[in-house]
Each structure stands twice: as structure tokens, then as C-alpha cells.
Amino acid sequence: MVVGTAAVGAVRFELEREDLFEGAELDSSLWIPHYLPQWSSREASRARYVLGDGTLRLCIEEDQQPWCPEFDGQLRVSNLQTGVLAGPLGSREGQHRFNPDVVVREAQAPRLLYTPHYGRFELRAKALADPRCMVALWMIGVEDVSEHSAEICVMEVFGRDVEPHRARVGMGVHPFGDPRISDEFEAVPLDLDAREFHTYAVDWLPGRVEFAVDGRPVKVVHQAPDYPMQFMLDVFEFRDQPAGDEPHPYPKEFVVDSFRGYRPVGVR
């Protein structure tokens, strides 16, 4: 349902999806609370999260196990995604095949909940200063064919890059299996306290992707995937990384205030 509009430059956008995380339960029409479950299992990839006071808190807890230790080491993750698509058990077909040796270990019913083709997308969230953690919102191709697999990284923030009044915010595109996309990614230094709420946004249009933070343009990429994409919203903990000198108790929390998706008017 369209509930509002926004204009950026010469392009007009209509609000298409919105989650303010005001309910007691996760919106199951928008989010799947697992991380790439085809390569592991729904149980091992299950997100841990808390809803309350109008926020989503994606959590890494002390007893949480690695999501796919055979192929991704000790990485722990809590992730929400807006689609899942994979081949049959034992196949090499599936979204974001992060390791050449992985095969589908648990069959998944196809679910494409929100997979736009161009638009404006916004996340209001707080990052973590934990040097072992990273938070992110990224988009991946639905991979109805293997070439439809590029990534648009709206934002990613490693805790090691967070200082009281400065942070490096990653943004850009990665090709993965898309031969039409060149890798163009940058961790942009910004004067902000990433531990407080900020709005990270991207305008994805034919031939370009424009990135902004708190309404201020930050980066433009003059190339863009041209197929439906889904969203990945997550917090990672890299257990093999140095913990730093300061204590960082559990749970490790990525606090999200809102997510919005706008569709462009008249853009095909």
C-alpha cells in the first residue's frame, strides 16, 4: 500500500513498504528470520532478536553457535532477509553462494516477500563499537538465474571503525556472479557517532546507485544491477578477531528504528 511520497532530484518516489517495528511480533510478510538457510539449516541460521519500545534489536548472544562452521568458521550471525530461493537438496543452486564448496543442505520453500527492482531504501539504526562485530543492510540479487547475483551494500559498519565522533561506513556494489558489474566499494570516513541513530539510504536507479547518510549525499556509483533484489539486515560477530581492550558484554545488539522502501514513479 502506498502511504506517502518522497522526491529526490528529478525522480519521485512512493512509499511502498515500511516497518517501524511497533508490534510484538516480527512482520512475517516482510522478513524471514534466517541467514541463507539453504547452506546450513533453518535452526542453525535462526536469528535472535527482541522487539520492544518501537525498535528491533538483532542480537548475538553468548551461547549462540556459528551458523555454518564447516565453511564459514566461527562466524555468528543474526539476520533478517526478505526472500529465499534455492535449488534441491545437494545442488549448487542458491542465493549468495559464499563458498565454492557449499551445496544445498536443507531444502527451502521459495519465498520472495519483498524484491523490488529499483527504488529508494532507508534504514534508521545504531551501529556497534565492538571490534569483533559488524552491522549491515545489503541487497542481493534474487538469483532466478546465477548472473542475477550482484550486491548493493547500503551500509556496513565494523565496530573497529567506530570512534566517538567518527566512523567508516562501507557502501557500494560487488559483482559476485554478475559479469556486468565491476567491484566498486568504499569505507567512507564520516564525522558522526555511529552508536547513535542515523539514517542510511540508497537510491537505486537505472545505471547508477546513490548513497546518503542523514540526507547528505555521500557516494555515487555509475552502474547498477538491473533485476529484482532482496534485503539482508544483520549483525555479525567474528570470533577470530581481536576483542580489544574494552569490555563488550553480551548480547551484542544492532538496534534498528525503521526500514522504508520507496518505488520510483515512471522508472522501468
Rank of each mutant, 00 (worst) to 15 (best):
R168F: 14
L85R: 13
R12H: 11
A24I: 09
P164N: 09
S41W: 02
C133Y: 06
V209D: 08
L36G: 07
A6E: 15
H248D: 02
V2M: 14
S45K: 07
R239C: 13
S29H: 13
R124M: 10
Y114C: 15
V11R: 10
E70Y: 09
A125C: 13
R97K: 08
D161R: 09
L190P: 02
T199W: 07
S182F: 13
R168W: 10
R260Y: 02
D240Q: 12
D101K: 13
L233H: 01
D144Q: 13
N79I: 08
W204N: 03
K126G: 02
R97G: 01
L123T: 14
P217G: 11
V202I: 12
N79A: 15
N79W: 07
Y227I: 03
E122W: 00
A47T: 03
L128I: 14
F259Y: 13
E61A: 06
C68V: 12
D240I: 07
V265I: 09
P110E: 05
P264I: 04
R260C: 00
D245M: 11
G215I: 08
G119C: 08
S146V: 15
E61C: 12
Y35W: 13
G9N: 05
M155F: 15
V102P: 07
T55N: 10
E70R: 15
L112Y: 05
P110C: 01
H165C: 12
V77Y: 04
G141W: 00
P164Q: 07
P33D: 04
G244H: 06
Y49I: 06
G177I: 06
V256S: 01
R97T: 01
P66G: 04
R132K: 14
V267H: 01
V11L: 09
R42P: 00
G172T: 01
P225D: 01
L30W: 00
E184M: 08
G266P: 00
Y227M: 06
A125Q: 05
R111T: 04
S45P: 05
E184Y: 15
F21K: 08
E196V: 10
I181Q: 06
P206D: 07
R111Y: 01
A109V: 12
R105F: 00
L112R: 09
P88D: 04
G4F: 03
E93Y: 10
V218A: 03
F259P: 06
D240F: 00
Q108I: 10
P179C: 06
V84S: 06
D130Y: 04
K126Q: 15
L85C: 02
L112T: 09
I60D: 03
I60W: 00
G159D: 07
F254G: 04
M232F: 12
D27R: 12
R124I: 08
G159I: 06
G215R: 08
Y250G: 10
P249A: 10
G170N: 04
Q95F: 02
G52C: 04
F176M: 13
D191V: 11
P131Y: 03
M155W: 11
S182L: 15
E61K: 05
V50Y: 09
Q108H: 02
R124F: 02
D214A: 02
L30A: 05
M171R: 01
Y200R: 07
E93K: 15
P131H: 01
Y262R: 02
L89E: 15
H165Q: 14
A136C: 11
S40P: 05
D183Y: 13
T199Y: 07
